[in-house]
Amino acid sequence: MSVFDDYRNLLFSVAYRILGSAADAEDAVQDTWLKWSAADRSRVADPKAYLVRIVTNVAMDRLRSAKRAAYIGPWLPEPVLTSGDAPDVAPALLLVLENLTPLERAVFVLKEAFAFSYEEIAEAVDRSPDSVRQAAHRAREHVRSKRARFTADRDRQRAVTERFFAAAAGGDINTLMELLAPDVTLWTDGGGKVRQAMRPVQGAERVAAWLAGVGSRPYQGVRPDEMAAALVDLNGEPGLVISGAGRVLGTITLDLDPAGRVTAILNTANPDKLASVQGGVVRDL
């Protein structure tokens, strides 16, 4: 195995957390390979640091040029299938990171997810250690204000996810109201290609009514009784893959509070973001 292959999974993981897109992360890894191939590797003392620097800067450049503002409806991270022992890369967290600058996001990812030192990050992003510390502080404060640092027990996450889907599919508003936090937000990403809410739906009553309504009528030509839900690992936590008519229709992941109530629902249905799930590609994050 080549040196590059030794670090390919790490490079994908860094790029995915910065970009929130598996397809873009793969492109960033490929660009990194091209730069690595053209480099004078005899002068590279630390291949890991060198490759992480390349992929981080490629990902930041891609993030700067991303046209999120032109996206139709809410933008959500691309879901990926993971193994049961994968680290948690919750879509809700990646969504919070969307409001950071590319530098803040890269610094947060390298520090919080991969435990790089400030000096190593400074070298990777070509900044001083002090500026990196400041960017890390801003990023942490933003994440802390938008999403509490709480990770639900996997068994509880799985149980709530199963109960949530049964209630939504059956139009059981009473159970949905029990499961939903009062200030819950539903994000639906259709990318303008399939029918979805064009703005986030907020509040338990509105979200429960929206879910019950969607579960009672055909979607993309597929009747509710023709749909099936599989409980799988998405981004390192239990999630749902909704299928029908031989294709994946969407994915659902939930964010829970310490009481086990649903605070965020992320429903990705843009076909362009479902390719790896449709193909059953399991990622090592």
Rank of each mutant, 00 (worst) to 15 (best):
A245Y: 07
A113W: 11
L186T: 02
R195N: 11
A106G: 04
F114Q: 06
R53K: 15
Q157V: 00
Q220M: 12
N9H: 15
P218D: 08
I242T: 12
G279K: 13
A28S: 15
T175D: 14
T56R: 01
W33E: 12
D272K: 12
I173A: 13
T32C: 15
V3W: 08
G192W: 10
W33I: 01
A168W: 07
S65E: 13
G236Y: 00
S128G: 06
P271T: 05
K146Q: 13
D172I: 02
V3G: 07
E78Y: 01
V281I: 13
L234D: 13
R154T: 15
P129N: 02
P238E: 04
I54R: 11
V194Q: 03
N235T: 05
V143N: 12
D40V: 05
Q220K: 09
L285V: 11
D172T: 03
N235Y: 02
I173H: 06
R17P: 05
L266M: 11
D255P: 00
Q202Y: 06
D5V: 12
F12M: 08
I265H: 05
K193C: 03
S21F: 05
G246D: 07
V277K: 05
N270Q: 08
D189V: 02
A39D: 09
T253F: 03
M177S: 10
A204I: 03
D5C: 02
A66Y: 13
G190I: 08
L249R: 08
A169R: 13
P79Y: 06
D225M: 10
A169M: 07
L211I: 03
L231Q: 03
S65L: 12
G239S: 08
V143Y: 09
A113M: 07
A23N: 11
L179N: 03
A38R: 15
A39I: 03
L254P: 00
G73Y: 05
A49Q: 15
S83V: 07
M1K: 11
P79D: 10
R133C: 03
E98Y: 03
Q278I: 00
R147T: 04
L76E: 08
D155C: 04
W187F: 14
R195K: 12
P91Y: 06
A212L: 04
V89S: 06
K48A: 15
L254H: 01
W36H: 07
